[in-house]
Design a protein around this nucleic acid. Structure first.
Length: 278
DNA sequence: AGCCAGGGACTCC
DNA sequence: GGAGTCCATGGC
Protein backbone atom coordinates (compact mmCIF):
# COMPACT_ATOMS: atom_id res chain seq x y z
CA UNK A 1 0.00 0.00 0.00
CA UNK A 2 1.20 3.44 -0.89
CA UNK A 3 1.45 5.96 1.94
CA UNK A 4 2.59 9.52 1.40
CA UNK A 5 3.50 11.36 4.59
CA UNK A 6 3.98 15.10 4.55
CA UNK A 7 4.41 17.74 7.23
CA UNK A 8 0.75 17.97 8.15
CA UNK A 9 -0.97 15.34 6.05
CA UNK A 10 -0.97 11.69 5.10
CA UNK A 11 -2.28 10.58 1.72
CA UNK A 12 -3.38 6.99 1.18
CA UNK A 13 -5.36 5.02 -1.38
CA UNK A 14 -9.05 4.95 -0.50
CA UNK A 15 -9.11 1.36 -1.72
CA UNK A 16 -6.75 0.21 1.02
CA UNK A 17 -7.85 2.64 3.72
CA UNK A 18 -11.60 2.48 4.32
CA UNK A 19 -12.10 5.17 6.96
CA UNK A 20 -15.81 4.44 7.32
CA UNK A 21 -15.15 0.78 8.07
CA UNK A 22 -12.26 1.65 10.38
CA UNK A 23 -14.26 4.10 12.49
CA UNK A 24 -17.67 2.48 12.47
CA UNK A 25 -16.72 -1.07 13.39
CA UNK A 26 -17.01 -0.45 17.13
CA UNK A 27 -13.34 -0.17 18.08
CA UNK A 28 -13.49 3.60 18.64
CA UNK A 29 -16.18 6.06 19.68
CA UNK A 30 -14.51 9.48 19.65
CA UNK A 31 -15.06 10.66 16.12
CA UNK A 32 -17.56 12.88 14.35
CA UNK A 33 -19.01 12.33 10.91
CA UNK A 34 -18.98 15.84 9.44
CA UNK A 35 -20.26 14.95 5.98
CA UNK A 36 -20.58 11.81 3.90
CA UNK A 37 -16.89 11.92 3.05
CA UNK A 38 -15.35 13.78 5.96
CA UNK A 39 -14.64 12.68 9.54
CA UNK A 40 -13.13 14.33 12.59
CA UNK A 41 -11.13 11.97 14.81
CA UNK A 42 -10.31 12.88 18.41
CA UNK A 43 -7.79 11.07 20.59
CA UNK A 44 -7.33 12.84 23.91
CA UNK A 45 -6.46 16.38 22.70
CA UNK A 46 -5.17 15.27 19.31
CA UNK A 47 -7.43 15.94 16.35
CA UNK A 48 -7.30 14.90 12.71
CA UNK A 49 -9.67 15.41 9.80
CA UNK A 50 -10.05 12.56 7.35
CA UNK A 51 -11.39 13.41 3.89
CA UNK A 52 -12.30 10.97 1.16
CA UNK A 53 -11.45 12.38 -2.28
CA UNK A 54 -12.43 9.64 -4.70
CA UNK A 55 -9.42 7.31 -4.95
CA UNK A 56 -7.39 9.15 -2.33
CA UNK A 57 -8.06 9.66 1.36
CA UNK A 58 -6.32 12.50 3.13
CA UNK A 59 -5.59 12.65 6.85
CA UNK A 60 -4.77 16.16 8.05
CA UNK A 61 -3.49 17.18 11.47
CA UNK A 62 -0.95 19.43 13.13
CA UNK A 63 0.19 16.28 14.98
CA UNK A 64 0.78 14.08 11.98
CA UNK A 65 3.32 11.80 13.69
CA UNK A 66 0.77 11.00 16.38
CA UNK A 67 -1.80 10.01 13.77
CA UNK A 68 0.69 8.08 11.67
CA UNK A 69 1.02 5.80 14.68
CA UNK A 70 -2.67 6.11 15.66
CA UNK A 71 -3.80 4.83 12.27
CA UNK A 72 -1.19 2.08 12.56
CA UNK A 73 0.66 2.71 9.32
CA UNK A 74 3.69 0.89 10.70
CA UNK A 75 1.87 -2.45 10.58
CA UNK A 76 1.77 -4.60 7.44
CA UNK A 77 -1.81 -5.88 7.33
CA UNK A 78 -1.29 -7.84 4.11
CA UNK A 79 1.31 -9.87 5.95
CA UNK A 80 -1.09 -10.41 8.86
CA UNK A 81 -3.80 -11.58 6.45
CA UNK A 82 -1.38 -13.98 4.81
CA UNK A 83 -0.27 -15.50 8.13
CA UNK A 84 -3.84 -15.89 9.41
CA UNK A 85 -4.95 -17.65 6.25
CA UNK A 86 -1.88 -19.84 6.50
CA UNK A 87 -2.94 -20.91 10.00
CA UNK A 88 -6.63 -21.22 9.17
CA UNK A 89 -7.50 -21.38 5.43
CA UNK A 90 -11.22 -20.84 5.99
CA UNK A 91 -10.38 -17.24 6.87
CA UNK A 92 -9.76 -16.68 3.17
CA UNK A 93 -13.45 -16.14 2.48
CA UNK A 94 -14.04 -14.12 5.65
CA UNK A 95 -11.40 -11.48 5.01
CA UNK A 96 -13.02 -8.81 2.85
CA UNK A 97 -12.32 -5.26 3.97
CA UNK A 98 -8.81 -4.33 4.85
CA UNK A 99 -8.61 -4.30 8.59
CA UNK A 100 -6.97 -1.58 10.63
CA UNK A 101 -6.71 -1.47 14.40
CA UNK A 102 -6.29 2.00 15.81
CA UNK A 103 -3.64 2.60 18.44
CA UNK A 104 -5.80 4.43 20.94
CA UNK A 105 -4.87 6.13 24.18
CA UNK A 106 -4.96 3.52 26.99
CA UNK A 107 -6.74 5.70 29.53
CA UNK A 108 -9.34 6.93 27.03
CA UNK A 109 -9.91 3.31 26.01
CA UNK A 110 -10.51 2.28 29.62
CA UNK A 111 -13.20 4.90 30.14
CA UNK A 112 -14.77 4.30 26.73
CA UNK A 113 -15.09 0.55 27.05
CA UNK A 114 -16.52 0.68 30.56
CA UNK A 115 -19.32 2.71 28.95
CA UNK A 116 -19.54 0.19 26.11
CA UNK A 117 -20.60 -2.75 28.28
CA UNK A 118 -24.11 -4.04 27.51
CA UNK A 119 -24.73 -0.97 25.39
CA UNK A 120 -25.13 0.01 21.76
CA UNK A 121 -22.73 2.06 19.68
CA UNK A 122 -25.05 4.98 19.12
CA UNK A 123 -25.70 5.43 22.80
CA UNK A 124 -22.07 4.82 23.75
CA UNK A 125 -21.06 7.63 21.41
CA UNK A 126 -23.71 9.91 22.87
CA UNK A 127 -22.57 9.34 26.44
CA UNK A 128 -18.90 9.89 25.54
CA UNK A 129 -19.73 12.99 23.47
CA UNK A 130 -21.51 14.54 26.45
CA UNK A 131 -18.60 13.54 28.70
CA UNK A 132 -16.21 15.45 26.43
CA UNK A 133 -18.47 18.50 26.30
CA UNK A 134 -18.85 18.58 30.06
CA UNK A 135 -15.28 17.84 31.16
CA UNK A 136 -13.03 18.17 28.12
CA UNK A 137 -11.42 21.29 26.67
CA UNK A 138 -12.98 23.16 23.78
CA UNK A 139 -10.71 23.33 20.76
CA UNK A 140 -11.92 26.27 18.64
CA UNK A 141 -9.77 25.30 15.64
CA UNK A 142 -11.80 22.15 15.22
CA UNK A 143 -15.00 23.25 16.94
CA UNK A 144 -14.98 20.16 19.13
CA UNK A 145 -13.98 19.04 22.61
CA UNK A 146 -10.99 17.02 23.73
CA UNK A 147 -11.45 13.81 25.66
CA UNK A 148 -11.15 14.89 29.32
CA UNK A 149 -7.91 14.05 31.11
CA UNK A 150 -8.01 11.96 34.27
CA UNK A 151 -7.50 15.18 36.19
CA UNK A 152 -10.46 16.87 34.50
CA UNK A 153 -12.77 13.91 34.89
CA UNK A 154 -11.88 13.43 38.56
CA UNK A 155 -14.20 16.35 39.30
CA UNK A 156 -17.21 14.31 38.20
CA UNK A 157 -19.49 12.62 40.70
CA UNK A 158 -21.93 9.78 40.23
CA UNK A 159 -24.81 12.18 39.59
CA UNK A 160 -22.83 13.83 36.82
CA UNK A 161 -22.42 10.54 34.99
CA UNK A 162 -26.13 9.80 35.48
CA UNK A 163 -26.87 13.19 33.98
CA UNK A 164 -24.97 12.44 30.78
CA UNK A 165 -26.86 9.16 30.50
CA UNK A 166 -24.30 6.60 31.66
CA UNK A 167 -26.95 4.77 33.69
CA UNK A 168 -25.76 2.06 36.06
CA UNK A 169 -22.24 2.41 34.72
CA UNK A 170 -21.94 5.72 36.59
CA UNK A 171 -20.86 3.92 39.74
CA UNK A 172 -18.24 1.93 37.84
CA UNK A 173 -16.83 5.12 36.33
CA UNK A 174 -16.55 6.88 39.71
CA UNK A 175 -14.79 3.95 41.33
CA UNK A 176 -12.46 3.34 38.39
CA UNK A 177 -11.45 6.99 38.18
CA UNK A 178 -10.46 6.89 41.84
CA UNK A 179 -8.48 3.70 41.27
CA UNK A 180 -6.73 5.13 38.22
CA UNK A 181 -5.33 7.94 40.37
CA UNK A 182 -3.40 5.44 42.48
CA UNK A 183 0.29 4.74 41.67
CA UNK A 184 -0.74 1.13 41.01
CA UNK A 185 -2.35 2.32 37.78
CA UNK A 186 0.42 4.56 36.52
CA UNK A 187 0.10 4.13 32.76
CA UNK A 188 3.84 4.38 32.13
CA UNK A 189 4.35 1.35 34.36
CA UNK A 190 1.34 -0.60 33.12
CA UNK A 191 2.68 -0.70 29.58
CA UNK A 192 5.65 -2.73 30.79
CA UNK A 193 3.54 -5.53 32.27
CA UNK A 194 3.01 -8.79 30.43
CA UNK A 195 -0.37 -9.25 28.79
CA UNK A 196 -1.57 -11.59 31.54
CA UNK A 197 -0.32 -9.34 34.35
CA UNK A 198 -1.90 -6.32 32.70
CA UNK A 199 -5.18 -8.13 32.24
CA UNK A 200 -5.47 -9.09 35.88
CA UNK A 201 -4.58 -5.51 36.81
CA UNK A 202 -7.35 -4.17 34.58
CA UNK A 203 -9.80 -6.67 36.08
CA UNK A 204 -9.29 -4.94 39.43
CA UNK A 205 -11.03 -1.88 38.02
CA UNK A 206 -14.74 -1.45 38.55
CA UNK A 207 -16.88 -2.17 35.51
CA UNK A 208 -14.16 -4.14 33.78
CA UNK A 209 -14.72 -7.86 33.23
CA UNK A 210 -12.99 -10.27 30.85
CA UNK A 211 -14.50 -8.91 27.64
CA UNK A 212 -13.93 -5.23 28.36
CA UNK A 213 -10.42 -6.00 29.63
CA UNK A 214 -9.57 -7.71 26.36
CA UNK A 215 -10.90 -4.74 24.38
CA UNK A 216 -8.68 -2.40 26.41
CA UNK A 217 -5.66 -4.68 26.00
CA UNK A 218 -6.10 -4.82 22.24
CA UNK A 219 -7.39 -1.37 21.31
CA UNK A 220 -5.67 0.65 24.05
CA UNK A 221 -2.44 -1.19 24.85
CA UNK A 222 -1.78 -2.70 21.44
CA UNK A 223 -1.64 -6.25 22.80
CA UNK A 224 -2.39 -8.60 19.95
CA UNK A 225 -2.25 -11.87 21.91
CA UNK A 226 -5.84 -11.46 23.11
CA UNK A 227 -9.01 -12.85 21.58
CA UNK A 228 -12.11 -10.86 22.52
CA UNK A 229 -15.12 -13.10 23.10
CA UNK A 230 -18.49 -11.38 22.86
CA UNK A 231 -21.97 -12.47 21.86
CA UNK A 232 -21.01 -12.55 18.16
CA UNK A 233 -17.94 -14.71 18.68
CA UNK A 234 -19.98 -17.08 20.83
CA UNK A 235 -22.45 -17.41 17.96
CA UNK A 236 -19.60 -18.04 15.54
CA UNK A 237 -18.09 -20.66 17.80
CA UNK A 238 -21.37 -22.52 18.15
CA UNK A 239 -21.58 -22.69 14.35
CA UNK A 240 -18.54 -24.91 13.95
CA UNK A 241 -18.44 -26.70 17.27
CA UNK A 242 -21.09 -28.60 19.18
CA UNK A 243 -18.99 -28.59 22.33
CA UNK A 244 -20.27 -26.33 25.07
CA UNK A 245 -17.50 -24.00 26.13
CA UNK A 246 -17.48 -20.85 28.20
CA UNK A 247 -15.95 -17.55 27.09
CA UNK A 248 -12.58 -18.22 28.68
CA UNK A 249 -12.30 -21.58 26.97
CA UNK A 250 -13.27 -20.13 23.60
CA UNK A 251 -10.71 -17.34 24.01
CA UNK A 252 -7.95 -19.78 24.99
CA UNK A 253 -8.82 -22.01 22.05
CA UNK A 254 -8.25 -19.18 19.56
CA UNK A 255 -5.16 -17.79 21.31
CA UNK A 256 -3.54 -21.20 21.16
CA UNK A 257 -4.34 -21.25 17.44
CA UNK A 258 -3.37 -17.70 16.45
CA UNK A 259 -0.90 -16.56 19.12
CA UNK A 260 0.22 -12.97 18.52
CA UNK A 261 -2.26 -12.69 15.63
CA UNK A 262 -5.29 -13.48 17.85
CA UNK A 263 -6.56 -9.93 18.10
CA UNK A 264 -6.61 -9.49 14.35
CA UNK A 265 -8.13 -12.91 13.72
CA UNK A 266 -10.93 -12.02 16.14
CA UNK A 267 -11.67 -8.80 14.28
CA UNK A 268 -11.91 -10.55 10.92
CA UNK A 269 -14.28 -13.11 12.43
CA UNK A 270 -16.31 -10.39 14.14
CA UNK A 271 -16.64 -8.32 10.96
CA UNK A 272 -17.68 -11.40 9.05
CA UNK A 273 -20.33 -12.27 11.62
CA UNK A 274 -21.98 -8.87 11.86
CA UNK A 275 -22.14 -8.51 8.09
CA UNK A 276 -23.60 -11.88 7.29
CA UNK A 277 -27.28 -12.38 8.00
CA UNK A 278 -28.36 -15.43 9.96
C1' DA B 1 -44.84 -2.84 24.02
C1' DG B 2 -41.09 -5.35 24.67
C1' DC B 3 -36.62 -6.76 23.46
C1' DC B 4 -31.92 -5.97 22.85
C1' DA B 5 -27.32 -3.67 23.02
C1' DG B 6 -19.75 -6.46 21.18
C1' DG B 7 -21.26 -7.34 30.01
C1' DG B 8 -20.30 -6.86 34.91
C1' DA B 9 -21.20 -7.22 39.88
C1' DC B 10 -23.25 -9.69 43.27
C1' DT B 11 -25.31 -13.60 45.36
C1' DC B 12 -26.32 -17.86 45.80
C1' DC B 13 -24.96 -23.10 45.89
C1' DG C 1 -16.44 -21.63 39.62
C1' DG C 2 -20.85 -22.16 37.37
C1' DA C 3 -25.69 -20.40 37.01
C1' DG C 4 -29.18 -16.66 37.87
C1' DT C 5 -30.44 -12.10 38.46
C1' DC C 6 -30.35 -7.31 38.37
C1' DC C 7 -28.61 -3.34 36.52
C1' DA C 8 -30.22 2.42 33.38
C1' DT C 9 -31.17 3.92 29.05
C1' DG C 10 -32.60 4.62 24.33
C1' DG C 11 -33.26 2.77 19.67
C1' DC C 12 -35.92 -0.16 16.95
Amino acid sequence: MKIIKQENKIIVDTESFNIKAILECGQVFSYHKLTNDKYLVVSMDNVATVSILQDKTIIESNKIDYFYNFFDFNTDYKEIERKIIEISPNYKEMIKDTLRILKQDPYQTIISFIVSANNNIKRIKGILDRLCIKYGTYMPNYKCYSFPTLNQISLAKKEDFIEIGAGYRSDYLCKTIKQLQQPRFNMDKLINLSTNELKSRLLELSGIGPKVADCILFFGFGRTDVFIVDTWIKKAYSLFSSEIRNEKQISDYFIKKFGELSGYAQQYLFNYMINKDI
